[in-house]
Write a protein that binds this DNA or RNA. Structure first.
Lengths: 112, 112
DNA sequence: ACCACATTAAACCATCTGGTTGACAATAAG
DNA sequence: CTTATTGTCAACCAGATGGTTTAATGTGGT
């Protein structure tokens, strides 16, 4: 189901555990055990999240002795951010006109 | 499982059909039928995607006659973009040093 | 009143997800 | 060699997802 790069990137980011792991990696490299430690979770469970991040290209692993050291790989994040930036005008330029329009509609309809 | 705003936003974006619907909405308002039309899919199937987008706060609906007119609502996109921008330094400032480091590691290990 | 259209809701299905457990492999250390 | 550490793999589970079909609702047009 998940096919292209944006799919896998956004999917990887749609989970607080994985975003936490990325935040942890932002502070420095971590082994899988270290990455999973903050979350109440089995080692194998954490390893699955790591694999999702790896498949999305968001981290890179290298072996050091018996440890797997993970490091952040931000390229896919850049692509995702570029895609999102495409929509910037919809929350800036159009905001004023949209808001007026929506206000008017809300008064007529739900009034949320 | 899906809890906070970033979760629902990223999850909604992790699907090409839904991103396509957003792209369609970028050109103007659309009914659910119009949104689903480009994708080989049942109406009910398309309506489910629309509901995901709505739950993520990415679209807003209003009733016009017997149609449900959907309009883009970009606020959550802005939040997601802001979160992603947080990582910008990892694909800019650190890129040079990281690349050198990774190169050295690759030569020693896998050589991917 | 009646029919066609736009949408909703519910039941169902296959697959994916996020998590567990337990068995196993590889490496460091004693 | 033996043992503890670090990680992989496969099986399993409950629940979510993405899709279908079918039946029902609401609305507009005639």
């Amino acid at each position: 189901m998940v096919e292209n790069r944006l799919d896998t990137t956004f999917h990887a980011l749609a989970d607080p555990t994985r975003r936490g792991m990325l935040a942890s990696l932002a502070l420095g490299e971590r082994s899988i055990g270290e990455l999973g430690e903050p979350f109440c979770m089995t080692f194998a469970g954490a390893a699955k999240h790591v694999k999702v991040l790896e498949n999305a290209g968001l981290i890179r692993r290298r072996k050091v002795g018996r440890k797997q050291i993970c490091a952040l790989q931000a390229k896919p994040l850049e692509e995702a951010e570029r895609w999102l930036r495409q929509w910037e005008r919809f929350w800036t330029v159009r905001l004023d006109q949209l808001e007026a329009l929506i206000e008017r509609e809300n008064q007529k309809e739900t009034g949320e």
